[in-house]
Amino acid sequence: MFRRDVLLVFGLLVVCGVVALGSANLRTSSFEPLGPAAFPLGLASVIACLSLVLLVQSCMQARYKSRLPKVVEAIPTEGVSPLRQSWLAAAMMALAIGFGVAIGILRIDFALASAIFLLATMTIMTRFRLRSLPLILAISAATAFGSDYLFTKILVINLP
């Protein structure tokens, strides 16, 4: 567990570094107060900080294993095979990469790509429960199109 967490942290830190370097090359315009680099840089910073928190937590758990309280997992993995857990992680990573490719290379509209990404992510996380689909559709659409409106109309930040 400790080794896996350390590898995850260093992998995330590398990805955050690449995103930070890539955001430094984004063009800015005179009418945007924050510029397009603010959001990816801020997101990379938050992920890097959370990764370091995970590293500290993992080190403490490895050192004081018997004294720490049991952590409640967002997705229960008890009774779930390691192969299924790996599939879930691989699916989430593939969706994240697909989202980046969709908006960066294929130039799909941000709101549409976000809605599809959120729909797929939440559907997988709820283990394809059909009765959750109407709620997932509503949350995906509201979040994707709401964030698109927030960034483009209110904050006046150009999205890909």
Rank of each mutant, 00 (worst) to 15 (best):
L55I: 00
T152R: 15
P82S: 10
F117I: 00
G79K: 08
S81R: 07
Y149Q: 05
F110Y: 15
R131E: 11
L54R: 14
F110N: 01
I139E: 05
A89T: 14
L12G: 15
L50W: 01
L88Q: 09
L34Q: 09
T121Q: 08
C59Y: 13
A96M: 15
A144K: 06
G100S: 07
T77Q: 10
P33V: 13
I108K: 06
M125C: 14
V6K: 03
T126N: 13
S51G: 15
N25S: 14
M93S: 12
G104M: 03
N158D: 11
G22W: 05
S114P: 05
A89V: 15
K70A: 14
R67V: 12
L83Q: 12
L26D: 08
R27M: 15
L26N: 06
F151R: 03
P40T: 02
A20G: 09
R63P: 00
F117G: 03
G11Q: 12
A37G: 09
L41K: 08
A48V: 00
I105G: 00
F10A: 09
L150T: 04
P160R: 01
A111P: 02
T123K: 02
M60C: 12
A102L: 11
F99M: 11
I157D: 06
F145N: 02
G104W: 04
D148M: 05
A141T: 11
M60I: 09
I157Q: 07
A115I: 05
I103E: 04
R63Q: 12
L54D: 05
F39H: 00
L106E: 10
A120C: 14
M125P: 01
R107G: 01
I47F: 15
A113G: 02
G17S: 07
A44P: 01
T77M: 11
V6D: 00
L55R: 03
Y64G: 01
Y64Q: 08
V19E: 11
E32T: 09
F10C: 14
L12E: 09
L112E: 01
G104D: 04
F2C: 03
L43H: 03
A113I: 04
N158Y: 09
T152M: 06
F151Q: 03
R3G: 01
L106F: 15
F10H: 08
Y149I: 12
S86H: 13
N158L: 11
G146M: 05
S140C: 03
Q85M: 08
R63L: 13
I108A: 06
R63N: 08
I154C: 03
P36W: 10
L21P: 02
F99I: 02
A24K: 12
I139W: 00
S132V: 07
A115C: 15
G79E: 08
R63M: 11
V19H: 09
G11W: 15
L83R: 13
T152N: 08
S147F: 12
S147V: 10
S51P: 03
D5K: 07
M1E: 14
A48P: 02
V71T: 12
G79I: 07
K65Y: 13
L130T: 04
I139L: 13
A113L: 04
D5L: 04
R131W: 07
I108Q: 06
N158Q: 13
